[in-house]
Nucleic acid binder design. Structure first.
Lengths: 298, 298
DNA sequence: ATGCACCCATAGACTCCCGCTATGGGAAGG
DNA sequence: CCTTCCCATAGCGGGAGTCTATGGGTGCAT
């Protein structure tokens, strides 16, 4: 059984307020509930986390460690909740955001969680799509703010770079390239059986532009075009080809040795992630806040 | 109410196995349980996550996004569980690890989670202490492997650098230095009312050495010496002085604008994090595996 | 000394969550 | 046409988790 989030919240509340009773008040529940839960938590983990005394409670060293790990878990959970809240709100919100998949999945949740701290009442409606559609949304007034990747700039939109990432070539651990010593050449990459996002996505545009700039004899002719990062990962894992994905999307897979990165020579796969809004309108209010969160967090 | 972890696991299982029934089997529960929980999850979030059909189930685009965020949450939870498991095992384990606070809190959980993937049966016993004590533990045979920070090297121990971080000077947002333009000088830093870890900790040793190397007229005379990162953060927040902490420890606080980083000139606050083991013994088995995880993850 | 205010723990009742089994409807395939 | 896979619903039972009520302990002030 996994440790449940509510118990972790209670542990943090005790750490912060210095007593079980104060923690209970801060969580708007009764003190015996916290007492009970903490006891079961300690029994469940097999650790003694809290030192009780008649004048309050402090965490044991082990409790401090667990509390620190718990903060990570709850922060990830906050990001999920922030993302979900943004997805749910469809029209009744102050700020409509249209974001590319990469930004929406890997960066926006953190920004939204930060925004929630700074101005808790801002409601955000999130639409996930590819970079081209996001630009169209903003241009047509269907969104107040957009986040896109890739080299394109669109007339009628202002842009501000909020982050940088790079595309990564990945293969399954069994693939011949996973044991390569030398970096790939431009030609090898262009000729590879690539598994990539569809045209119009920032990921694809970045790849195509980079190949052209590097002097490839032709743009990539992908073996597979898929609409989500998860689909691409799955295809790569089953040995269907060579994947091209944002570094954000594969950090954990590289760490967990589920995917291998293949180095590439002479091709610049870095790209800028930009916030965009309509020229003419000045960036203000909630939109400005969110962009500030994005800039600060990178 | 926060979304509970079990529901997130089920969502991921459905994404992975392509059907609700298969997900149930993979989790060793009955299919109606999964059906029921997914329905309640969708109602709870106000989103439609799964597209059911008589031939299986696929995630909707929104479901894919939520699933990606869920992976983050569960990964953090895995790290917590791995850390707790290591803390709990006291004597019956194959690998006794003694680690400095910084490493134990911020890096080890990830390594342990990776180790669990690579060799699930390895039991790790974790002792958290400062760098000096960790070295003593390994030297005396009380631990098979140690992780330390700071400049010291100890006779009789082999070491391998597994990561690098740097110390950061932080102040509360209201502090005068939070609006500083120019970096601090060596003298300003040495004269500041510092809040630091105790002597013998890698954090403190690194600071003292760095000041000497930078030509400070004296080593720091701290206003407060505290034994944990959380205590230092709390002291800084209440305006009691200037904190010195590992970057790992304050990333989230900087992002959330709870603390401000103050730049320093001419002082090299980088430090190496090292794995250590007894000279003579060759690094092998579980210990070698864990070091490999550490090296790979950085 | 004697309240008083805070701390924490325990006991008992009640509710609701969440797993189970049993069953039924729909689509594909031999 | 029958099997086999998919999914959904209904009803049941145990346990988790909340509440209120109560009691014991410590420190402080009257």
């Amino acid at each position: 059984m996994r440790t449940d989030l509510r118990s972790l919240e209670m542990l943090l509340a005790v750490a912060e307020h210095g007593s079980i009773g104060a923690a209970a008040r801060s969580l708007d529940i009764q003190q015996p509930s916290v007492t009970d839960r903490l006891q079961r938590l300690e029994r469940h983990l097999g650790l003694s986390l809290v030192e009780r005394s008649p004048r309050g409670s402090r965490l044991t060293p082990e409790g401090v460690a667990v509390a620190d790990w718990a903060r990570e878990v709850l922060s990830a959970s906050d990001q999920l909740e922030a993302g979900v809240a943004a997805l749910r709100r469809s029209h009744d919100s102050q700020l409509r955001v249209s974001a590319s998949l990469t930004v929406a999945e890997y960066l926006l949740p953190r920004w939204l969680a930060d925004l929630r701290l700074r101005s808790p009442d801002t409601g955000v409606a999130l639409r996930m799509c590819n970079s081209e559609q996001a630009a169209q949304d903003v241009l047509h007034g269907d969104a107040d703010l957009g986040f896109i990747e890739g080299p394109r700039t669109t007339r009628g939109l202002h842009a501000r770079v909020v982050a940088v990432d790079d595309l990564v070539i990945v293969v399954a651990p069994g693939h011949a390239w996973s044991r390569r010593r030398r970096p790939l050449t431009v030609t090898e990459l262009a000729d590879a059986p690539l598994i990539v996002r569809e045209k119009g996505s920032g990921t694809r545009d970045t790849l195509d532009h980079a190949l052209v700039r590097a002097g490839a004899h032709r743009t990539a002719t992908p073996r597979l075009e898929l609409g989500s990062t998860a689909a691409i990962k799955a295809a790569v894992l089953t040995g269907q080809g060579v994947g091209v994905l944002s570094r954000f999307a594969i950090i954990d897979d590289i760490r967990g040795a589920r995917l291998r990165e293949v180095a590439v020579d002479e091709v610049d796969l870095r790209r800028r992630l930009r916030a965009i809004w309509r020229s003419g309108t000045h960036l203000a209010g909630p939109a400005a806040e969110l962009v500030a969160c994005a800039v600060q967090s990178s």
